[in-house]
Design a protein around this nucleic acid. Structure first.
Lengths: 200, 200
DNA sequence: TCTAAGTTCTAGCGGTCGTTCGGTATAACG
DNA sequence: CGTTATACCGAACGACCGCTAGAACTTAGA
């Protein structure tokens, strides 16, 4: 049923570090084969642990997926909040937001691929409310910046809602094709998307 | 092992019609719960058939997925080829292509959601080569139109490859949020994306 | 009407799934 | 040092998986 973090302070850190390793390894395997198609046997092989040892860290397969989603969204939100809430010109805030976002996508490709793959579960099941809220908060941060850009006249959209959805689509899709040593860096991609959205 | 279409011509049509029904029903259930997470028992419940009857039409669960992907890609390609290969101005061909594409996305949301969800399988496994080729051909049709627009000076891209990838991302993502009786029609969305790509 | 083809049913097979649990070795803490 | 929390092991469990065989029923075509 459970995975309990140690109460002894000296062991706490080691446990968390190892747990992160397990999550990252699992994210990689899930991204390759799919969450549902990956068996716990696949994960024991990939982590080097056996079934019992694995469950010492993860609690259940679903909690493992939850951990991956949280590792994706929580740090992204933490970085995005101060940028979106800053007081510079909206178009500069948008550019900074996109660069941070795409760096995060590039660094957490596996996590995002799993997130996108299992979206139907995350959007439907009650136990995924917390993750849904994270996703919605991030989208609201983006929309606020676009809305303020429109208000100040710095941006103009035929349909702001559609522009936001298009942006979400292109950025999330980036995880499908981005390669770390590819032709374009995360920043170049971010600027490319930004120009696509704002030019004219 | 297999599902054999009837040899008698009079029954052939009925068989194909029923088979299409089964595919569409399966696509709906797969889109809701995920391909891997859906059991054959779920499908027997959804189709009204029992296990044996179901296998009379589908051959195997994987062939069922293949059928869904083909129902998505084959008619889209058939519509897209003459538009992309036409001789009007490139920007008009692009607009027509996008409208057709988005009408197709709107009409086959379930199919596209399943396709996107199982992309990791389709892109990796050897037996999915035919579907990969369909996807690549469609992307090539799009890129050809963009390239000719650039050549004739009708379009200008900072990075044409990135523009194509952005376009693919936003359109495919549309299946996630499009609602048949929503605020925007498929054509309005297509025009919105087209303007985003070309304006400036 | 008769026959062969087509359609669907029922029952269940072998295998794999996520998970559990009792155990052992190790390290922290008093 | 002794005690106890921690780390990990590995066999085994019950449930469910995709799929099949074989028979029963229905319909098309001669």
């Amino acid at each position: 049923m459970a995975s309990q973090p140690p109460t002894r302070p000296a062991l706490r850190e080691r446990y968390e570090r190892r747990r992160q390793e397990v999550l990252a390894t699992a994210a990689r395997v899930f991204a390759e084969r799919g969450y549902q198609a990956t068996s716990m046997a696949d994960l024991t092989e990939a982590t080097g642990l056996t079934a019992g040892g694995l469950y010492h860290y993860i609690g259940s397969k679903e909690q493992l997926l939850f951990g991956i989603c949280d590792d994706l969204m929580a740090p992204l939100l933490e970085q995005a909040r101060p940028i979106a809430g800053g007081d510079g010109p909206p178009q500069e805030r948008l550019r900074a937001l996109l660069r941070t976002w795409l760096r995060h996508v590039a660094a957490h490709r596996d996590h995002l691929l799993v997130f996108a793959q299992e979206r139907h579960v995350i959007e439907r099941e009650p136990q995924w409310r917390a993750v849904r809220r994270q996703r919605r908060e991030f989208e609201a941060l983006l929309d606020d910046v676009l809305a303020e850009g429109e208000r100040t006249g710095a941006m103009r959209f035929a349909d702001r809602r559609l522009a936001l959805l298009a942006l979400l689509g292109m950025v999330n899709h980036t995880a499908q094709w981005f390669r770390p040593r590819g032709r374009l860096s995360a920043e170049q991609i971010a600027d490319g998307y930004c120009d696509l959205l704002l030019r004219g």
